[in-house]
């Protein structure tokens, strides 16, 4: 899925756009990946009209939030493992805690457990305040 050369180049430059470009749906959503001050990946979904679910509120589409988090977890795994293998989602469980406003959405992931075949990843999404997540999710990925 992701070419190792572009991942290594991204790690050196801090610009992950070429990596995102290799995942069409992540590109369509507009996912942005960078590293925080501690060198950990942080993901952003800049606000865009095409990610709106409820035009009256307006609110982000729940599916777009889920798609964003799942792609964040995939990218986090690719980043952490530096492997050409394509992690495949086995299951994905998403809890919506607050409605997503028409603003940028941020996410961080945590690899809870990485085994030989399966990884468990937790995801947290927030907007204004990281301590007030709007959604949390966990997923299992098949690594080989």
């Amino acid at each position: 899925m992701v070419q190792l050369e572009s991942l290594q180049a991204a790690k050196e430059s801090g610009n992950y756009d070429d990596v995102i470009d290799q995942i069409p749906y992540a590109k369509l959503l507009g996912v942005v990946m960078r590293e925080d001050s501690e060198g950990q990946p942080i993901f952003e979904l800049p606000f865009s009209d095409h990610n709106i679910g409820n035009v009256h509120l307006p609110a982000l589409h729940g599916g777009a939030i889920g798609g964003f988090l799942e792609n964040a977890a995939l990218l986090h795994l690719v980043w952490a493992r530096e492997s050409n293998d394509v992690p495949r989602t086995i299951d994905f469980s998403l809890d919506f805690l607050r409605s997503g406003k028409a603003q940028s959405l941020y996410a961080r992931c945590d690899i809870t457990k990485q085994g030989k075949r399966v990884a468990n990843v937790r995801m947290t999404a927030w907007q204004e305040d990281e301590r007030k997540p709007i959604a949390v999710a966990r997923a299992h990925f098949l690594l080989s």
């Binding site: 069409p24 749906y25 992540a26 889920g66 799942e70 792609n71 998403l94």
Partner: peptide, 12 residues
């Protein structure tokens, strides 16, 4: 297809 697409489809 990306898994996230399935999330949107199933949610909707």
């Amino acid at each position: 297809l990306n898994g996230g697409v399935m999330t949107s489809l199933i949610d909707t």
